[in-house]
Design a protein around this nucleic acid. Structure first.
Length: 803
DNA sequence: AGCACGCCGACT
DNA sequence: GTCGGCGTGCTC
């Protein structure tokens, strides 16, 4: 007897282990690790992943696998092991790890149904109606009709039964393909002998004769040959044609053509950066490279040529790009060089499209996957290189379970494939640069820009000074003059502001009341469109009040500036400027992102105004001015990475200016211009920033000097949340290494979100073998309460942000 | 997660 | 005496 170890799709602590099932003899050959199956679990059926095969089980009575869900493993052996590793590194359930590695379309969907098993005539009248022309009824429908008491009687009698159906969310897209039966002559004869009234059928046959006998989709046949469903059907009945359903891929780039590009000659610097990567590929050796190069130093060309080598050796490659940088411009570069060998995976695609791209990888039809974070799980079997562009980006860390960092996964996968990882950035994460300094990663510096253009001139404007001199506008005099100058010279500008909406908060001038979200401890943002107040955390909306809800004063005013307000102000002070605004609110519709960018690229606007999303990857030759309206917005957030993020963002944004023939200028407006993040970004001085920030981290015992873990507790009741957190903190203090620092508990920086109070506790440690098991115990201890009392506990090992 | 089992209060 | 509340524990 063969036994399968199955991890079932029930995300809970007690079910987080393999269960043994008997493999039916007929499937002994088919069922291998990585295949998904449907198994009886308690009273119902669930999906599960086969993680191993054995000859016997320790367990007494075994149930049998009910159904196969895959014919080829959904997860390779390597990915199964990786799942195990993820479970340990992120403290998540095995099933969550497995599901995270697959496209969302492959997640199981459960349908509860009542099916007719006995004779329909035995049913009472009220039920007989519902089962008159079907033998199944959905659970929801039964609920809606309030039929449970009579249903229950029938179930006891055995006329009806409850079944669970396990389905896949996404489907393969299939089209009807029409094939010709028989030789060309046979068809010709048939066409000749067609009765005169069957003109459509004759036309279809003639079409096949003139265009070869290759199969064709029914839709095309209708369009090109004037076929109709009726004519096709009769031809099929006559045995001249056959219908088949074949899988087709949804093609998200179907309507785009890509200009093929060739390798460019490398500069001497690029040569010396690529050489160690290539020898690593040749020697089939694992190594992590940190390619540290300023914007415009040609990192992408190095990636492309290294990948080219990998593909020529018959191996595959993964390229990770931050979600917001996964722009058409970026995709073009890879599609242009590698054409149809590329699969693209990003959030802009529909679930179905993502699934199709994934299938291409699984079937070995492509050699390269370009995508955001989750593309790191691309099911390649023979990886030759993994590239992570802009490796410092926080979007590589998943903020839900499993809370993995794509960089760690990449290194893990590259180890098992004995291949290099290339991390690229102009502003590496402090951890990465520190590791390069210690020789754990190999540093590949690219100091010069390919076109030898100097980095743009950056000036910092002290907005306090502006205010003192009577300028209350959001534009400093310098920025305004420069904007005007670009308009006159017909050059383009990019304005960056890290806040969407109209104003950041609304306050009463008489009593100081600030309008807050009723569900979260955060002020609401006014949105001009629809005159609404919105909460950016829970999406709560409320009308804008005309008077203060507290003191009924009418002096309520907007404070702080969002992109909408800047747009309005621009229209007032520079009426002739054409402005494109890009933020979550203007790009939520599919394709909007791409459309706005191409409009700007075609010169249909003078100013591109936007949030985060315009900071990366954009490369427009006519942009000669970049303005950062408020550089301090994230500088003072209670997060140990806020200086690093500010420096990275400013450097990143500055890189948008003067990338081509025209030289660029950057103006940074700030209320704390003396801060080292801003000063060193102005000088383009990463090394200086690194030194300075490292000493800050050392003082605060933060990474990379210490490892960090954060435990978060949330509950609708404040006392419950703080009480549980207090207990956990006590327990941690008693059971971890004496050198481990347990800080807190404290209320989270945003103490309440979606009506849940949040408390947290921070753990700083250098080496603590007890910590992980202790944290696991904590999860175990509160397991029931998380399920029953709406208690939320999350543990983040190596958090990217403390918010 | 679901679901059954089981032990205490208000009813035919 | 029973029906039904939801606390506890199990699912190969």
């Amino acid at each position: 007897m063969k036994v399968a170890h199955v991890v079932v799709d029930v995300p809970a602590m007690q079910t987080d282990k393999p269960f043994d099932y008997r493999i039916p003899e007929k499937w002994e050959e088919v069922i291998v690790p990585g295949i998904r199956v449907i198994v009886p679990f308690g009273p119902r059926k669930v999906q599960g992943f086969v993680t191993g095969i054995a000859e016997a089980s320790d367990h007494g009575k075994l149930k049998t696998i009910s159904e196969l869900f895959d014919l080829t493993p959904a997860l390779t052996d390597e990915l199964l092991k990786l799942g195990q590793w993820l479970t340990e590194k992120t403290l998540c359930f095995q099933i969550s790890a497995f599901q995270a590695m697959l496209p969302a379309a492959m997640k199981a969907k459960y349908e509860k149904k009542i099916v007719l098993t006995g004779n329909a005539e035995e049913l009472p009248f009220d039920l007989a109606v519902l089962f008159s022309n079907t033998d199944s009824l959905s659970w929801d429908e039964a609920q809606a009709h309030d039929l449970f008491s009579s249903l229950q009687k029938q179930m006891k009698k055995g006329t009806l039964e409850v079944v669970y159906q396990v389905k896949q969310k996404g489907k393969q897209k299939k089209v009807r393909s029409i094939e010709v039966n028989g030789t060309a002559e046979a068809i010709e004869t048939a066409a000749r002998e067609m009765p005169p009234q069957a003109s459509r059928q004759k036309a279809v046959l003639d079409f096949f004769i003139h265009n070869g006998l290759s199969p064709m989709s029914a839709a095309d046949l209708k369009e090109l040959a004037g076929a109709s469903d009726a004519s096709i059907k009769s031809l099929v009945q006559k045995g001249l044609l056959t219908e088949k359903w074949v899988e087709v891929y949804r093609d998200p780039f179907g309507h785009r053509t890509f200009k093929p590009t060739k390798s460019m000659p490398l500069t001497r610097e690029q040569e010396s950066a690529i050489a160690p990567i290539l020898s690593c590929i040749e020697e089939k050796r694992h190594e992590v490279f940190l390619m540290y190069g300023v914007t415009g130093s040609g990192k992408t060309e190095v990636y492309l040529q290294a990948i080219d080598r990998v593909i020529r050796e018959g191996k595959e490659a993964i390229v990770l790009v931050p979600e917001i940088a996964l722009t058409p411009q970026m995709v073009d570069r890879f599609k242009g060089r590698f054409g149809s060998m590329v699969a693209v995976l990003h959030s802009g695609l529909s679930t179905g499209e993502k699934y199709d791209e994934w299938r291409k990888i699984q079937r070995g039809e492509v050699k390269l996957a370009v995508g955001a974070r989750s593309a790191i799980f691309a099911p390649f079997q023979n990886l030759g290189i993994i590239v992570i562009d802009e490796e410092h980006e926080s979007s590589y860390k998943q903020e839900e379970n499993p809370r993995y960092h794509a960089r760690d996964v990449a290194i893990r996968r590259a180890e098992s494939h004995s291949c290099p990882v290339v991390l690229g950035s102009a502003t590496p994460a402090l951890e990465s640069f520190a590791r390069a300094g210690k020789g754990v990663y190999k540093l590949l510096p690219l100091a010069k820009r390919v076109n030898e253009r100097p980095l743009p001139e950056v000036s910092v404007v002290d907005m306090r000074e502006e205010l003192r001199e009577g300028n209350r506008s959001m534009f400093s005099r310098a920025l305004f003059e420069h904007l005007q100058a670009r308009l006159e010279r017909n050059e383009q500008s990019v304005l960056f502001l890290n806040r969407r909406g109209f104003s950041s908060f609304v306050m009463c001038r008489d009593c100081g009341f600030v309008i807050q979200c009723p569900n979260c401890d955060i002020s609401m943002t006014y949105h001009r469109q629809g005159q609404k107040m919105k909460c950016h955390y829970c999406a709560h909306e409320a009308p804008m009040p005309s008077s203060c809800p507290e003191c009924t004063s009418e002096h309520i005013r907007f404070f702080g500036t969002g992109t909408q307000k800047v747009e309005e102000e621009l229209a007032r002070v520079l009426p002739e400027a054409r402005v494109i605004r890009m933020d979550v609110d203007t790009t939520s519709r599919k394709g909007a992102h791409e459309r706005l960018l191409s409009q700007f690229g075609e010169g249909k606007a003078d100013i591109l105004l936007g949030t985060q999303m315009i900071a990366k990857g954009l490369d427009f030759p006519k942009v000669t001015l970049v303005g950062v309206l408020a550089a301090d917005t994230m500088l003072h957030l209670p997060d140990f990475r806020s200086s690093e993020k500010t420096f990275q963002l400013l450097t990143q944004v500055s890189g948008r200016a003067g990338r081509h023939d025209l030289s660029g200028e950057v103006i940074i407006q700030s209320y704390s211009p003396e801060h080292y993040s801003i000063q060193l970004a102005k000088e383009h001085h990463y090394d200086g920033f690194f030194e300075r920030e490292m000493s800050e981290r050392k003082l605060g015992s933060y990474p990379p000097y210490y490892f960090l873990a954060v435990v978060n507790v949330s509950h609708p009741d404040l006392l419950k949340a703080s009480g549980v957190m207090e207990n956990i903190a006590q327990y941690l203090k008693q059971n971890t290494d004496p050198y481990t620092k347990i800080l807190g508990p404290v209320a989270s920086p945003i103490p309440r979100i979606k009506n849940r109070y949040r408390y947290q506790c921070m753990i700083k440690y250098k080496k603590d073998d007890k910590l992980i098991p202790v944290l696991k115990k904590v999860m175990d201890r509160y397991q029931q309460e998380t399920a029953r009392e709406d208690l939320g506990i999350s543990i983040d090992l190596n958090p990217s942000s403390l918010m």
